[in-house]
Nucleic acid binder design. Structure first.
Length: 590
RNA sequence: UGCCUCAUGGUGUAAUGGUAGCACAGCAGAUUCUGAAUCUGCUUGUCUAGGUUCGAGUCCUAGUGAGGCAACCA
């Protein structure tokens, strides 16, 4: 995509980049390595886009790399369907921006173990260019993570606990020590091995880090680091029946991959001491990663949690994860939004620790700004009203030159056919117009875009009282280049030739919810917008027969549109990406 | 309740002890063969109270308010 008007924005600045810049300058790490680590249990949404732009943006700005890693330590909730969609979404979002920073591993590769000064190390870096690759998976490190757990046991820093979930919860809440806390290393080793070998049922035993029984931060009260799950894993199959918890797996995955800056959202703040404790306890030979937290994105007029998005999908309130009304990356993409607009949005909202609520208007602006520069202008009529130009012969035919993109001098022109019978949009004619209405009215004049000024002489009613057709006259001296081209006429409207127009299914999407904070009272479904999708059959100028999925279109005076994948030969389907700003609608509300 | 974090116009952010700036939104005007875009201008802000300092949005103390965590989820 070519954006001639592009001026490079200054590099973003925020508290995390300040830390990275400091570390880079101090030569603390050989290379800056970040990571984007989604759990493959749902589709990525615009909140993830913020994180992707942050992590890949940092990699890009500091000559580093950002690993895509599936954080797949809970087999009960995960699926390859999500692995695939996540990979596709990330690739799409960074395309043309940070492709070169995408860190993947050699397909099938596992960490290499080695001893450094008698200290156990495991490392798995990104694949060299040209290799067959796949994302990193936390589950690829189950062997190494297991060995680290054994090491912790040997050091007397972990124990097998036989209490059930309720008991553990109560003991942790009240700051009491587990009765199994002081088991011998040998017994712990034996029990942990038997957990691994599948000798115990789920819930009967856990491995817990031996940190504190009554630390003020509850995450430090002997946290669970392994649990039993007799479930097949989407990536490791039946190899394991014990799985590491997030806190144990995440810091070690970061370490194994050589991550330097592990950036996550605010809710993990209280986990950071545990992140650091585990890495420090293991006496690791390479520089340790550090965790930094930023505020997740909250957007008006939508919901963002996976649980709620899942509900919308499962209850068929939307057509799927990629419904264009969804805040998912795939939905936003299907709506016709460019990755560039999403990145631009991420740039403008910044990175802080303040948990705010961003107005969706900021996103809207980023989308319009991108589309305005590249969209091809087209004439299309959404709700057709027939016009008959009574002073033209039945076979009158003429073609106008229409500019493809006023923002692009190299954009060229196309021909649009003009005949005796036309369609205009219902909104552009009113029998009894309000003040300041300067479109067509009985006895009034309006300019046809790229063409002539016409005058409405007669309104012909249909049997049902609606408008059958408008009988107008045309002034053939008023075209651009004509003797009266400069004649004053306040309104200019879009139109198509009735005999040349092609039909298209047009899906008019609007925001999914009617209120800024749909879940404020916890019942977001009560605020679904009943008019979030309206489907019309539009009359389009003939050049749209050659529409392509790569291009974006502005139906002049209406909105931006993109071709939907539902398009079949002979059946065009357009999605409304976003409307043009509408000062007239605003005026009417006053 | 405990622990942690945060607080700058309507919203999102910048200012690293030295002129409170930017973007979005809003309002007004210019321009316009898109009521779009573009251009110009305007309105609106440092949570409160003390303190340190020549000087505080920034540092300190207390308060207030908001959010997060307290899963064999991540």
């Amino acid at each position: 995509m070519n954006h001639p008007a592009d001026a490079p924005s200054p590099a973003p600045s925020d508290f995390i980049r300040d830390v990275v810049a400091g570390d880079a300058q101090a030569g603390k790490y050989r290379k800056i390595v970040t990571r984007f680590p989604p759990e493959p249990n749902g589709y990525l949404h615009i909140g993830h886009a913020k994180s992707i732009c942050l992590n890949f943006g940092i990699a890009r700005e500091f000559g580093g790399v950002c690993h895509l890693r599936m954080d797949d330590t809970n087999p009960a909730k995960e699926d390859v369907e999500y692995v695939d969609s996540i990979t596709a979404d990330v690739n799409w979002l960074i395309s043309g921006f940070a492709d070169q920073c995408l860190g993947l591993k050699v397909k099938g590769a596992a960490p290499e173990g080695r001893l450094v000064d008698g200290r156990q190390d495991f490392y798995l870096g990104e694949a060299p260019a040209g290799a067959a690759v796949e994302p990193f998976y936390a589950s690829d490190y189950f062997d190494q993570i297991y060995q680290f757990a054994v090491q912790l046991i040997r050091q007397g820093k972990a124990f097998v606990c036989d209490m059930n979930a309720e008991q553990i919860d109560e003991y942790r809440r009240t700051g009491k020590a587990s009765p199994f806390r002081d088991r011998s290393v040998e017994e712990n080793l034996d029990l942990f091995t038997r957990m691994k070998n599948g000798e115990f049922p789920e819930g009967s035993h856990t491995l817990r880090a031996k940190i504190s029984v009554d630390a003020p931060n509850i995450w430090m009260r002997d946290p669970l680091i392994y649990r039993i799950r007799h479930v097949e894993h989407h990536h490791t199959g039946a190899a394991w029946c014990i799985y590491p918890m997030y806190d144990f797996a995440h810091c070690l995955s970061d370490y194994i991959e050589g991550v330097t800056h592990s950036i996550c959202t605010l809710e993990f703040e209280v986990h950071r001491p545990l992140y650091d404790w585990i890495l420090e306890a293991l006496n690791l030979p390479r520089p340790l990663p550090h965790q930094y937290e930023f505020a997740r994105l909250n957007l008006t007029y939508t919901v963002m949690s996976k649980r709620k998005l899942m509900q919308l999908v499962n209850e068929r309130l939307v057509s799927g994860w990629d419904d264009p009304r969804m805040p998912t990356i795939s939905g936003i993409r299907r709506r016709g939004v460019h990755a560039r607009a999403l990145r631009d949005f991420a740039y403008h909202i910044g990175i802080t620790k303040y948990d705010g609520l961003t107005e969706v208007g900021v996103l809207d602006h980023a989308i319009r700004d991108d589309l305005n520069r590249i969209a091809l202008r087209k004439l299309a009529v959404l709700r057709p009203v027939k016009i008959v130009l009574t002073n033209l012969d039945a076979d009158y035919f003429e073609e106008f030159d229409a500019v493809n993109n006023p923002a692009d001098p190299q954009g060229g022109t196309r021909k649009v056919p003009f005949t005796r019978e036309l369609f205009i949009d219902a909104d552009d004619f009113m029998e009894v117009p309000p003040p300041k209405y300067f479109r067509l009215r009985p006895g009034g004049e309006v300019r046809l875009k790229y063409g002539y000024i016409i005058k409405c002489e007669e309104v012909v009613k249909a049997a049902d009282g609606g408008i059958a057709e408008l009988r107008c006259t045309v002034d053939l001296t008023t075209k651009r280049g004509g003797v009266n081209e400069g004649r004053k006429c306040k309104g200019t409207i879009h139109w198509v030739s009735a005999s040349h127009a092609i039909d298209a299914e047009v899906r008019l999407y609007d925001r999914l919810f009617t209120v800024p904070e749909p879940d404020a009272e916890g019942n977001f479904k009560a605020h679904l917008n009943p008019h979030s999708l309206e489907v019309v059959t539009a009359k389009c100028e003939p050049s749209l027969a050659a529409a392509s999925p790569e291009e974006r279109y502005q139906f002049e005076r209406l909105a931006y549109f993109a071709l939907d994948p539902d398009t079949k030969p002979g059946h065009l389907v357009f999605n409304r990406t976003i409307t043009l700003k509408d000062a007239w609608a605003k005026e009417q509300k006053k």
